[in-house]
Computed example of a mutant assay.
Amino acid sequence: MEPSTIAAAPTTTTRRRKRKIVVIMGPTGAGKSRLSIDLATRFFENSEIINSDKMQVYRGLDITTNKITMQEQLGVPHHLLGAFDPTKSVITTSEFRKVASEIISDIKSRRGLPLVVGGSNSCIYSLVTKRYDPKSDVFNGPDPHPVSSELRYECCFIWVDVCLPVLNQYLSKRVDEMLDSGMFEELAEFYRSGEHMTVNRSGLGQAIGVPEFETYFRRMESSDSEEDVMGQGEAYDEAVRRIKDNTCQLAKKQVSKILRLRDAGWELKRIDATEAFRGVISGESGGARVAEIWEKQVVEPSMKIVKHFLEE
């Protein structure tokens, strides 16, 4: 390369800066969606949310996969939420990277702020790393591949964390609430209609709740005696127990992946939401005290972090 060519290269100040995005990560049930809506509706009104939960990208089983409802979205645009046909091939991390990056470009072209929100750290990793290799696995196995620290976006990582013993208590309570809200009926229709035979078993068919209730619904189909009816009750209780256990195991795995990214040098801003969840579990003051704790310990520090990031 000629010396004159080197001299003509753009300086640091004139070189095009990376696009800024905000990533809200954390284990299942930690309040990521709630925080994203708080930030988007109250502080950063040009925000649009990109779902990065690999089960919520598929259509169907909205209660079982715990998708944020239209009412809860409060008018904030959401992308990749129930966007893909669950009967087709599984959405790979490479496909997620391609589609999500196109959405980010579109949001930025309208001077919006992309908020990537979800618990699937493999999707987040595939999206933000500069040179993503789908054959590499940086999270699993006895000798995982090295984590890349070279990112293609300027990222503000908000890590919503909850002490695992407290989160586990909450997750058990949340499963009960989901069942009260129609999760069982949703799964019953899923099996009754035969939809469970058409969805990709490596995609939506893996959503927590689907495999756990399979034994129960098989018993229902073949029950013709009092003994079978009693067995149904036992199968139901066992399914609920397994859903709670598997949800807690998922949260633990998600935290371990986040810690791996942090230990590899990713600048994650940890927000501790434990006290708010303790309040939820104990039912403090009908929720008023919980809302106050959530505001002071989660929303306000997150808002300040994002504001500083955008002003830099």
Score class of each variant (00 low, 15 high):
L113F: 06
F277T: 09
H145L: 12
M55I: 11
Y153T: 03
N200A: 04
W266F: 08
I124R: 08
K244P: 11
S193Q: 02
F309L: 01
S222A: 09
H78L: 08
Y216S: 09
K307T: 07
M178I: 09
S193T: 04
E311V: 08
I293E: 07
I21V: 14
L204G: 06
L261I: 03
K269M: 10
G233H: 14
N200Q: 05
D263W: 07
E267K: 09
V22E: 04
P27I: 00
I37V: 13
M55T: 10
G279Q: 03
A288E: 14
T64D: 03
R15M: 09
R15N: 05
V290G: 01
T215A: 12
K67N: 04
I104L: 03
F309A: 01
P165E: 00
G205K: 09
E186Q: 09
I281R: 15
D180W: 13
L81K: 06
V162G: 02
R260C: 00
M25R: 03
N246D: 08
D224G: 11
R219T: 12
Y216H: 10
S148F: 03
W294S: 10
E227D: 12
M303S: 10
K173H: 14
L167S: 01
A251M: 12
D106E: 14
I103R: 13
R152I: 03
R15S: 06
D137N: 13
L81W: 01
L115I: 05
R17V: 10
L250D: 05
A235R: 07
P134N: 02
L250M: 15
S181L: 10
V23A: 11
K54R: 13
Q73Y: 08
T274E: 00
G194T: 02
T65P: 03
L250P: 10
E102W: 05
M70I: 15
G265H: 05
C248E: 06
S89K: 15
I258A: 07
G231R: 05
R219Y: 15
P86E: 01
D263N: 13
S89V: 11
S89R: 14
L74E: 13
P165S: 00
V299W: 00
A251P: 13
K244A: 03
T14A: 07
K108D: 09
T13M: 14
S222Q: 12
T28V: 06
Q73T: 11
A40K: 08
D143F: 14
D245T: 12
V229N: 10
